[in-house]
């Protein structure tokens, strides 16, 4: 919930910024009025008032939407105002994702590929934009244990699947054997491709914990590395396979 509200607030800030602009720029008013705000003011942990502001519609041809239903929420802190805003937009979809072992929910443009959602909604850095064409592997994530690109497939299509990124590998005791191996082999130059290499490697090790050199090469083939760090990636995956029996 906190995450959800945090995001809402960020959007809100942007909305208000654009509202300032809107006064100059009337054409974009429409999208603005498709939304409204919950306003809470609280003082010493007590809610003083709770208000709904629906921003009225300037144009009768655009329907005014009801706010989303919010079941439960928490407010911490001593005093202040919280405003939670909603957007009603017929192009957005809600998606429930299983991301690094947590159930999360997002509401995004129905076409929005998973990659953008992972980076922007969940602040992940592992998956990266490289080509947006499923040619380079920078954006790889593990989906039900298999390494796949995330730069084209809409977010919604990943519902019901287990999504893992390298951020999910960190264990409480420190690095995952694969992370350890990449670090020990110093397998990176600029490191932009590292995510793709690790995910492609992990996908392989899950199904084949003791791969041959050639199997490693085949598994990493979809991932581009312009720095030419290839041989170190191969050694790193070999090393990981020696460190652990299961991935």
């Amino acid at each position: 919930m906190a995450e959800w509200l945090g995001r809402g607030l960020q959007n809100l800030v942007q909305r208000f910024e654009s509202a300032r602009d809107l006064n100059k720029n009337k054409e974009t008013l429409f999208s603005f009025f498709k939304e409204g705000f919950f306003v809470f003011k609280w003082y010493l942990n007590k809610i003083l008032f709770f208000n709904i502001h629906v921003l009225f519609n300037a144009s009768p041809s655009i329907p005014c939407y009801a706010p989303l239903k919010i079941d439960r929420f928490e407010i911490r802190g001593i005093n202040g105002i919280l405003i939670f805003h909603w957007i009603q937009n017929n192009m957005t979809v809600k998606a429930q994702l299983d991301l690094n072992g947590k159930r999360v929910q997002v509401e995004v443009d129905e076409d929005e590929p998973l990659l953008y959602v992972l980076r922007e909604e969940f602040g992940l850095n592992g998956p990266k934009f490289g080509c947006g064409l499923q040619q380079c592997g920078s954006c790889m994530v593990l989906v039900d244990g298999e390494a796949v690109p995330s730069c084209i497939q809409p977010c919604k299509s990943f519902e019901g699947k287990k999504i893992e990124t390298i951020e999910g590998l960190n264990t409480i005791n420190g690095l995952h054997p694969l992370q350890e191996a990449f670090f020990e082999e110093q397998a990176a130059q600029c490191g932009y491709c590292l995510n793709g290499m690790m995910i492609a490697g992990l996908g392989l090790l899950r199904s084949n914990p003791k791969p041959s050199d050639n199997e490693i090469r085949e598994a990493l083939e979809p991932v581009i590395c312009r720095c030419g760090t290839h041989t170190r990636f191969i050694s790193a995956i070999k090393k990981a396979s020696q460190k652990s029996a299961k991935f």
Partner: peptide, 24 residues
């Protein structure tokens, strides 16, 4: 946060209360 015409808003303690997400 700046005004929007109808609402004048400001925040305090927000980072503490709600912004403990990865993004921040």
């Amino acid at each position: 946060l700046k005004t929007s015409g109808q609402l004048l808003i400001g925040f305090n303690l927000l980072p503490l209360a709600f912004c403990q997400t990865k993004e921040t």
